[in-house]
Every structure is written in C-alpha cells, then in structure tokens.
C-alpha cells in the first residue's frame, strides 16, 4: 500500500534520513522503532509532504506522492496523528473533531463521529470542553479521534504512548486494535517497543537515520538488538 524507497532527507547540512526503505502492506500494522533523533518523525513528516526528500521515492497505492501538497495527501487517505498530540487547545473537543473532517464532504461524517465516540466515550462527555482543558491521556485520544475523522485508509501514529500512564497506554492500544479491525492500515512510530510490538506484525528499527534491523514481530522480539536496546531484556 505504501512503499518508501531509499529516502534521503537533509535538514540544513544534517543528513537526517540516510536511505530509508519501508513497506506497509494493505491491512497491516507496521511499526517503526528507534530512540530520539533516529529519524522516525522525519520519516512520517516526509510521507505527509511536510518535508521534501532530496532523494527517494514514496508511492501510495502505486502512485508517487513526493511533491504533493499535504492537503492532497490527506484526501488520498493518508492521515497522520502528530507527536505531542497537537490538538487545538482553544477549540472545543467537538470542534477539534470537526477540524479532522475539514477536507471531507461525504455524508458519513455523522456515522464516523458516532464511531469515534464509541471508541473513546470520554470524549463524548467532554465534547463541549476546550481541548486544552483535557488531561494528557484525553488529549491523546482526541488527537487519534481527530485523525480518524479525516477518514484514513492509512493511519500514521507518531509516538502515541509518549508521556502516558501504563493504564492509558493499554486503553489507547485497545482502541488501535479496533481501528485496525475496522480495516485501517497503521504505521506506528514508537519508542515504547513493548507496546508497539504488541500489535505490529512487522517492524523496522531506526538508528541515526538508517534502518539497522527489520523483520516480522517474532523475529524482532527475539533479536538481541531489540531485546537489549528497546525491551530492556538481557
């Protein structure tokens, strides 16, 4: 569904991505693991058209998307839930969700609103509250719900578990499972390898702009690199 080939990105003189190639098959959950500064967020931002790669190809359902405007990419069905939530603090929960479907005109908006409220019932209770008054966990739920309102076929999640209590992470990942079961493909960026590998089928490990390991979930879980550096075992 999404193919990234040999992506090179520079920030000023810094070679941030040094030839990243990843593949996300339709209907899968793929994860991108790595420490701070490894290039995970940059990879997602490049897919979304927020950063232009110097070299490399990105195709979505066979169509090249490098150079397209972000709004165009979103309308093609790739939606990113950015790191740090980035909800609109002055808008109400309801308005935040409506911002999610800004580019949509189809009649299924109502149904999708019902669906995200069933995924995150707490948002329904707080729909008239300003987004900025929510707790961190609720803000993350709002950010995911807002991304879902954009009707993604491919959902990019950037560090959704960052700064959340374990119980909230579990809740959030349960929602991700449901989102996946509803037919969405997910590319999940995480530092929290344990959480990510609980739902991903395939994973990549990034270090300083390069992929240093990849493989199906079981292979990664048993590999020394991942066990030592990301799962804290051994």
């Amino acid at each position: 569904m999404l193919e990234v080939k040999d992506l090179h990105v520079y920030y000023g003189g810094i070679h941030a991505l040094q030839g990243i190639s990843i593949s996300v098959p339709e209907g899968s959950v793929v994860t991108l693991l790595g420490a701070n500064g490894a290039g995970k967020t940059t990879t997602l931002r490049t897919i979304m058209g927020l950063v232009r790669p110097r070299v490399g190809e990105i195709t979505y359902r066979g169509k090249p998307i490098v150079g397209l405007r972000t709004s165009r990419i979103v309308r093609m069905g790739i939606v990113m839930c950015p790191e740090g939530r980035r909800i609109f603090p002055d808008l109400t929960v309801w308005e935040n969700l409506l911002m999610g479907c800004y580019a949509r005109t189809d009649p299924e908006i109502e149904r999708d609103l019902e669906w995200v409220f069933s995924l995150f019932p707490r948002l329904k209770e707080r729909r008239r509250q300003a987004g900025g008054t929510l707790s961190g966990g609720e803000q993350q739920m709002l950010a995911v719900a807002r991304a879902l309102m954009a009707k993604p076929t491919l959902l990019l999640l950037d560090e959704p578990s960052l700064g959340l209590a374990p119980v909230l992470i579990t809740e959030l990942y349960n929602a991700f499972r449901q989102i996946h079961q509803e037919g969405r493909t997910i590319l999940l960026v995480e530092q929290n390898a344990r959480a990510a590998l609980s739902i991903a089928e395939y994973g990549y490990v990034l270090e300083t702009g390069r992929i240093v390991a990849e493989g199906p979930k079981d292979e990664l879980v048993s590999s020394d690199l991942v066990r030592k550096a990301y799962l804290g075992i051994g």
């Binding site: 979304m48 927020l50 972000t70 709004s71 979103v74 309308r75 939606v79 990113m80 950015p82 980035r86 909800i87 609109f88 603090p89 002055d90 808008l91 911002m99 999610g100 800004y102 580019a103 949509r104 807002r146 954009a150």
Partner: peptide, 15 residues
C-alpha cells in the same frame, strides 16, 4: 481559529 494556534496541525487535517 485552528490555524492561528497550529498551522501545521491544521494542514495535517487536510485543510
């Protein structure tokens, strides 16, 4: 109102 608080997030909404 959204763009005034976060232009990039607004762009990510497909706006």
């Amino acid at each position: 109102r959204a763009i005034a608080t976060d232009m990039e997030a607004t762009e990510l909404m497909g706006a």
